[in-house]
């Protein structure tokens, strides 16, 4: 249950109403999970800034790409139903496509993202990708721009941040785990894969996906000495993240499943 894990939160931010994701949060681009949203300035992600997501290791790229798709679902859900901008620009490179696979529309639909909202751009060079993202952000025609790059230097990252502010369009930036972070991003998250949630009917089967999220940087957030590190799971029905239930039982559950699978 989402609210149980966060007793110390200010209650006014968002009363968790598990089954109605639409009304209370239409104007905010949030993760839908109170613990993490409370850590973000203004109770949500800034819809005119850069949000950087870094995988913890190279093996976490699949989780990062899927997490970005989930955030895109949240972003589309946060816009008014008749909003003019309903497209997501997904700017990737050939290397990423051959390494981690191309986007699969049916799989995006599984996560809750309608595939027809994706405008896929595949670039060969970094400069092209940066130009594409700037152009897309400044056009203001998009709900969200997603960019996958090796690394972003100071000047390009500032340009991207200014473009996002100029076009009132957020940018999800994904960079390699071993490169220095982009300096002008408003929020930086580090993401790792986690064993999936237990399947409700079949203990041997993988359940709904879980992400290990660490908030590394959060511009304008209330000062806090502890780093936020949470396990989130994505519900493709309600289109919201929630805290992974039964965190303490996880090792046990996995071990159990392994035992059964092995036996």
């Amino acid at each position: 249950m989402p609210s149980e894990g966060s007793p110390s939160l200010p209650p006014a931010t968002s009363a968790p109403t598990p089954r109605s994701s639409a009304l209370p949060e239409t104007r905010h681009w949030t993760l839908g999970e109170a613990t993490i949203d409370a850590r973000l300035p203004g109770g949500g992600l800034d819809p005119a800034a850069t949000i950087e997501i870094k995988p913890a290791t190279h093996a976490d790229w699949a989780s990062v790409l899927a997490f970005a798709a989930c955030l895109a679902v949240r972003r589309l859900g946060s816009l008014a139903p008749a909003a003019s901008a309903s497209q997501v620009l997904w700017c990737t490179t050939r290397a990423v496509t051959s390494e981690h696979g191309r986007l699969n529309g049916a799989g995006l639909a599984t996560l809750g993202l309608p595939p027809e909202t994706i405008l896929l751009v595949e670039t060969a060079r970094r400069n092209e990708a940066l130009w594409t993202l700037e152009e897309a952000l400044r056009s203001g025609a998009l709900a969200l721009a997603v960019g996958i790059l090796d690394a972003v230097d100071l000047t390009p990252s500032r340009r991207l941040g200014l473009s996002a502010a100029a076009g009132r369009t957020p940018l999800l930036l994904m960079t390699r785990p071993d490169t220095p972070p982009a300096l002008s991003s408003a929020v930086r998250m580090r993401l790792s894969r986690r064993p999936s949630a237990p399947h409700p009917f079949d203990a041997r089967a993988p359940g709904i996906p879980r992400f290990g999220l660490t908030l590394e940087r959060c511009r304008g957030a209330p000062v806090s000495d502890e780093t936020v590190s949470l396990d989130l799971e994505w519900c493709h029905v309600t289109h919201r993240f929630s805290l992974a239930a039964g965190l303490v039982d996880r090792t046990h559950a996995t071990g159990d499943a392994r035992q059964r699978a092995g036996g």
Binding site: L65, A66, H100, G101, L103, N104, G107, A109, T110
Partner: peptide
């Protein structure tokens, strides 16, 4: 989406 889930990356 169909019930058997499909991967987002192919």
């Amino acid at each position: 989406p169909t019930h058997p889930p499909r991967p987002p990356l192919l």
